[in-house]
Design a protein around this nucleic acid. Sequence first.
RNA 1: CUACAAACCCGAACUAUCGUGUUGCAGCAAUGCAACAAGGAAAGUCUGGACAGCAAAGAGUAACCUACCAGUGAAUAGCUGGCUGUACGUUAGUACAAGAGAUAGUGCCACAGAAAAUAACCGUUUUGCUUUUGCAGAAUAAGGGUGAAAAUGUGAGGUAAGAGCUCACAAUGUAAUAUAGUAAUGUAUUACAUGGGUAAACCUUAGGUGCUGUAAUGCCACGUAUAGUAUCGUUUUAAGAGCUACUCGCUCAAGAUACAGGGUAGGCAGCAAGAUGGCAACAGUAAUGUUGCUACAAGAUAAAUGAUAGUUUAGAAACAGAAUCCGGCUUAUGAGGUUUGUAGUUUU
Length: 128
Amino acid sequence: MATTFSYSKEEKLKSRKLLEQLFATGKSFNTFPVKVLYLEVEEPLDFPIKIGVGCSSRNFKKATDRNRIKRLLRENYRLNKALLHTAIAATNKQIAVFFLYIDKTMPEQEILQTKMPIVVEKLSKLIQ
RNA sequence: CUACAAACCCGAACUAUCGUGUUGCAGCAAUGCAACAAGGAAAGUCUGGACAGCAAAGAGUAACCUACCAGUGAAUAGCUGGCUGUACGUUAGUACAAGAGAUAGUGCCACAGAAAAUAACCGUUUUGCUUUUGCAGAAUAAGGGUGAAAAUGUGAGGUAAGAGCUCACAAUGUAAUAUAGUAAUGUAUUACAUGGGUAAACCUUAGGUGCUGUAAUGCCACGUAUAGUAUCGUUUUAAGAGCUACUCGCUCAAGAUACAGGGUAGGCAGCAAGAUGGCAACAGUAAUGUUGCUACAAGAUAAAUGAUAGUUUAGAAACAGAAUCCGGCUUAUGAGGUUUGUAGUUUU
């Protein structure tokens, strides 16, 4: 597994079916202000880690705000994903993950910068 | 010159590192390189179209929309110019308009007041009875107070007292004629009418509107219950079902053959060059049009256009994120600029 910072199309969690399955039966934990849902997948995927990001449109009515949150989540995951990738490569599993922003105020870049490594580390341990 | 308000213009730039989408090129591939990559409102969904589908893409009613005139435009509830009315103003002018009809009908008009619409409480005049008072009736809208609004105003005649009852002048409305204007309408004359307002009450009149929206729709792949389509064929029982808000009206049996279909989850088209933008000339008061030159690959589908650091403007910039496309309207919006208005200050 290459330790780049890329976040390409194959890596995105896109399948509606898989998303429904994730929200229905996936496990989750909170690391404020981010809720992480994850699920081990049996069927073969084109990429071993599928990632999605989002936030509630109830909390953020403007599309601009939602876009910014998703961009920040995506950006911070991209910069911190190396640890998770090595963990996955070691266990040979496949997972689908969704990062959900649960705070009701606009996020600060600095907070996410400090939190995201913690989130990724926790997720890596839980996978093993 | 400063402050405030309104309208319009504009809607940051550069460098480095990492990253995203599309297209092109190279490559067996991984990938690399290059180009391009949100808006003036992309928003609200308030409107008009393009495009597509739907029953025979029928009729009527209902419903909805519009409502001074002319021009403009694909079209509109848009835009431009004009007319009229209202408000402000000495004028010039500016702003706004829910700008057809109250003489088709129904309703409504709080409080106050006799009475809010086929007006008699007080008052005025008069008749009868009683005859001191008073009682009953008739006529009368001049005077009274209330109210947003009280029966067009002033004067004279007239009368029992009064009254547009009559006359003069004036006001408003309608019609006719003349005149100016394409027209709305203005001006003048004549005639008639004047017993309120409200249509942002129902309503009437005139004109218009079929409905659903690109998750439309077409095609391909996968795949197989018998819903659908086409053709053939059959029936007259028309109840029932389907089509629209309703009525009329129209369509529909079983069966056979062929196509092909529920559900699931994909791909391609639709899907980006058009009522397009910019500049110039010409026509027009203007909106706008014509001609010429020139520019234009955002196109996703859990949905790209970003993050960090530094520099600059001006303060690490407001409102805000395309989802079929285009026109208009409405609303939001930082700094700076332009114009107009108001207030104050300074100088002459």
